[in-house]
Simulated assay, not measured.
Amino acid sequence: MALILAPDEQAILTAASALAEGKLVAIPTETVYGLAADATNGDAVAGIFEAKGRPHFNPLICHVSDIAMAARYAVIDPLSRRLMDAFWPGPLTLVLPLKPDTAIHPLVAAGLDTIALRMPRGVAGKIIAVLDRPLAAPSANTSGKISGTSAEAVADDLGQKIALILDAGPSEVGLESTIVKVDGDGVLLLRPGGLTAEDIEAVIGGKLNRIDQRAAIQAPGMMVSHYAPSAGVRLNVHEVREGEALLAFGPERARGAERALASFNLSQTGNLREAAANLFDFMKRLDSLGGAVIAVEPIPFNGLGEAINDRLVRAAAPRVSSIAEMEQIK
C-alpha cells in the first residue's frame, strides 16, 4: 500500500527523490490529484499508463515549475506567453509545439508533435522545482473513471500500485485544468476546465474557438468516454426514477427526488464554483452505493458550468478504450 505523507518540506524532498528514482507519486494540485512520473524517464512514464490502464494514444499533461522550464521543451508564441503571464500558476494547460530533440519522452506526447504544459500551484510546483525536471501527471485514478480529489480517493483506487501519496486535503478547484491551443490569431478551447472561458477571453480580447469534442485527440481529456463511474449516468433529469441515486444542483428538486437511493447536492445555492469542487467526490460517493444509475439534475452552462457539463457528458457517454471504438460511436 502506498505511503501517505503530509506535504511538509521533508515529504517534498522524499517525493522528489522517489520521482528521480523512476517511481510513481500521487501529488496534490489545485485541480485534482495527479499521478506523477519524471517526464524524461520512459520507464517511469510507461508506469503511469500501466498503473492507470490508460490507452497509449491518450497524451499526458507535463507539469513545470516556471515559464523558464516550459521554454526548455516547447516553442512559446507571444499569445501563449501572455496567457502564461496571466494564469500561471493555475488551472490552465497550453498545447505548444515541441522543440526538436527535447528530453521529454515520446510516450508523454503520444506521437504528437505538441506538448501540453501546465504550471501548478503549491506543493506540486515545489516538487518539480526540487527535481528540476517536468512531471507527466494525469489525474490519479484508473483511466476513464472518476478523478481523485482527495488522498483517500487516490489510495482507494491506486494505493496498491504506487509508492507514495502526498495528502494536502481536498482539491481546491475539483476539476481538471482548462486546455487551450493558440491557432493562428485565435485560441482553440480543447477542454473546458477549472479556468472559465470568460476569464481567458478577457485576456485575449476575443472569443475562444471551439472544436467538435469528438475530433481527433489533440490533448488529454478529449476521449468521448471519460470521468465515468461504474453506474450509468442520466443527465438533465426532471424526474427521478425508482432506485436511482441523485446528483442534485440548486435549491429546487426534480420530481420524485424522495425516491432516490441517496442524494448529494453539488451546491444548494447554485454556486458553480462549489459545484465544481464537489463534482468528482459526490459522484464517487453515489457510485459506491452500487446503484445502476446516477440521475443528474440540470446544471447551467455558463462559467464553470461548461466544464462541469463537459465532465458529465463524458461520464454518461458509451465506455470506450480504443480509437476503433471511438470511431464506432462518432
Rank of each mutant, 00 (worst) to 15 (best):
residue 27 I to V: 15
residue 19 L to K: 01
residue 284 K to Y: 00
residue 149 T to E: 05
residue 32 V to S: 01
residue 292 A to W: 09
residue 315 A to V: 04
residue 257 A to R: 00
residue 164 L to P: 08
residue 149 T to F: 00
residue 184 G to N: 09
residue 322 S to D: 12
residue 254 A to N: 02
residue 266 L to M: 06
residue 10 Q to F: 03
residue 223 M to Y: 04
residue 132 D to N: 15
residue 61 I to G: 08
residue 284 K to A: 13
residue 320 V to A: 13
residue 284 K to N: 06
residue 159 G to H: 04
residue 21 E to K: 14
residue 325 E to R: 09
residue 300 P to I: 08
residue 183 D to Y: 02
residue 117 L to W: 09
residue 251 P to T: 01
residue 219 A to T: 03
residue 272 L to Q: 10
residue 3 L to R: 13
residue 218 Q to R: 14
residue 8 D to L: 11
residue 151 A to G: 07
residue 286 L to M: 10
residue 136 A to K: 01
residue 181 K to W: 05
residue 178 T to S: 11
residue 97 P to M: 03
residue 306 E to S: 12
residue 53 G to V: 11
residue 33 Y to V: 02
residue 308 I to Y: 00
residue 243 G to Q: 10
residue 321 S to H: 15
residue 288 S to Q: 08
residue 310 D to H: 07
residue 51 A to H: 02
residue 220 P to A: 14
residue 45 V to R: 02
residue 56 H to G: 02
residue 115 I to W: 00
residue 27 I to S: 06
residue 7 P to S: 04
residue 64 V to C: 15
residue 180 V to T: 06
residue 69 M to T: 04
residue 122 G to I: 01
residue 282 F to K: 12
residue 139 S to G: 04
residue 226 H to A: 14
residue 96 L to P: 05
residue 142 T to V: 12
residue 124 A to G: 14
residue 196 T to M: 04
residue 92 L to E: 07
residue 196 T to L: 03
residue 183 D to K: 11
residue 114 T to F: 02
residue 120 P to V: 02
residue 147 S to D: 09
residue 311 R to G: 07
residue 302 N to R: 07
residue 92 L to F: 05
residue 315 A to F: 10
residue 113 D to Y: 00
residue 181 K to E: 15
residue 98 L to V: 01
residue 107 L to M: 10
residue 115 I to Q: 00
residue 271 N to T: 03
residue 145 K to V: 03
residue 261 L to W: 03
residue 80 S to T: 14
residue 40 T to L: 10
residue 189 L to S: 07
residue 49 F to W: 07
residue 103 A to M: 11
residue 267 S to T: 06
residue 66 D to V: 11
residue 93 T to K: 05
residue 258 E to F: 07
residue 82 R to S: 14
residue 234 R to I: 02
residue 180 V to G: 01
residue 144 G to T: 11
residue 170 P to E: 09
residue 171 S to I: 00
residue 130 V to I: 13
residue 226 H to G: 14
residue 9 E to I: 08
